[in-house]
Computed example of a mutant assay.
Amino acid sequence: MAFATIHSFSKALRKASSFNVVFPEDEETPRPWSVFYLLHGLSDDHSIWMRRTSIERYVAGLPLVVVMPDGGRGWYTNAVEGAAYEDDVLEVVGLIDRTFPVKAERAGRAIGGLSMGGYGAVKIGVKHHDRFASVTSHSGAVGFVHGLGEGRERSPEFSRIFGEDPSNGDEDPFALVERIDHGILPKLRLDCGTDDFLLDQNRAFHEHLNALRIPHEYEEFPGGHDWAYWDAHVREAVDFHARNLGLR
């Protein structure tokens, strides 16, 4: 696999931004390639997946590009007051579509992430279901906007980004899955560690999906909110996406 860091001007953020890309370098790898957009958590940046996991090794041999955007501390959301990080992810999608030999359609795209990025992947993947075929979340902060957990305490930017009462709005995954035709939702997979402080949120979202009869995969594994857990289980996300994108 080859690796690149791309620097570009983000219209959504109104500033220069960067993202990392892993892509096939073997000339025998069939084209067009599919794309897996992989989002980081609250305290990290676009470099963290390459520094803390073996994601490059896990996708080796697949006709798959992995794109790792920089979401800052913006919750992959167009802030009420501040930057438009959701639009930035969609800008990156457009840039990849124009620049790399990829399948520039829903059937060729997947999105996933951890913690804040797990929330972002579920929110963006469901809201923009016409662009992504499958979604994965590790230890996702899927319930903060719904009023579960201590979102404002853990993220002082929370109110500025989401407003004072975002529950049941357009940034709340619980509300989004209720309002969208279930037949057009992307394939969903969520996992969480049994010692993770976000476990209750993930169980609640899993139960919500079950109550709505939305097909999805959900698993719990030993582990906490840490890189040992995410490095182990991003491999299952790669397998999940590879099946849904028709790569295996």
Rank of each mutant, 00 (worst) to 15 (best):
G125W: 00
E86H: 10
S115T: 10
A84V: 10
D87K: 07
P101K: 13
S137H: 07
S137C: 10
G112Q: 02
I124Q: 09
G94T: 07
E91F: 13
V89Y: 06
S139Q: 12
V89H: 06
E91L: 09
P101D: 14
I111P: 01
A107N: 10
S134P: 12
V102E: 06
A133N: 12
F100K: 09
S139A: 14
S134T: 11
R131T: 03
A121L: 08
I124K: 02
R109C: 04
S115A: 06
L90F: 05
V89N: 04
Y85C: 01
R98T: 05
I124T: 05
T136C: 13
G117Q: 00
M116S: 02
I124N: 03
D87V: 05
Y85R: 15
G113Q: 00
G108W: 07
V122R: 10
K127W: 03
V89M: 09
V135G: 06
I111T: 01
R131H: 09
A133W: 03
V89G: 01
V102C: 11
S139W: 10
A110R: 07
E91C: 02
R106S: 11
D97K: 04
V122K: 02
F132V: 10
L90M: 13
V102N: 04
E86C: 13
G117Y: 00
R98A: 15
E105D: 13
F132D: 05
D87S: 15
V93H: 02
S134A: 15
R106Y: 11
R98W: 06
Y85G: 11
V92A: 08
I124S: 02
D130H: 12
R131D: 01
A104K: 01
S134Y: 13
V102W: 03
A133L: 14
E86T: 11
I96P: 02
L114W: 06
R98G: 10
R131I: 05
G118I: 04
Y119H: 12
Y85F: 15
F100I: 12
G112H: 02
